[in-house]
Amino acid sequence: MMDRRAFFAGAAATALVPFAVTQPAMAGKLPQDGAEWFTNVEVKTHDGQTLRFYDDVMKGKILLINFFFTSCDNVCPLMTENLARVQELLGARVGQDIRMVSISLQPEHDTPEVMAAYAKGYGVGPGWLFLTGRKDDIELLRHRLGFVDSNPVTDADPEQHIGTVRIANEPMHRWAMSPALLNPPALIRAIKRVLPEFS
């Protein structure tokens, strides 16, 4: 388990405090203005909370966001398992400044209870939220987060949207994408790339 220490070695210097969200006054408006772009639609978590998407889930966080659905028995289990290993490597920072988010593509089926059982099955720790909500709201989030395909037939197939994880340093507007099945140390390198201030 090599990378855990490497990842935190630099962070230790800045102390493991959650990341201060101080934004200097900026000329002009940022084009992807948080709540306006990502919206504050209501989402329900696997542990029974109701949250506003931007303000409560995203704002100020380092994020790993992917889409999944519990009945997908093809790629999803491998992916969730892979992300569970990433969570393990990231350790206590998940739940502090880092948040993992998995959004259901079958919100009508994936109730909080169903997702809670799913998360338990993968040994998901705190700081990793499984989200569901109104079908239209989830579709909106999918589009706003760029999990879309220009071919409508491909776009309608939920399995086309589960292969990647979006990695974001939200306060810095820094977004990247990684394959969800990338080996955990490489995925951690990708996270570090949106976090150079810690490396």
Binding site: D149, Q160, T164
Partner: peptide, 14 residues
């Protein structure tokens, strides 16, 4: 095109 990104021979860059 694949898995929501752009691939070469079915793989993303590593």
């Amino acid at each position: 095109r694949g898995s929501g990104g752009w691939m070469v021979n079915g793989k993303f860059f590593d």
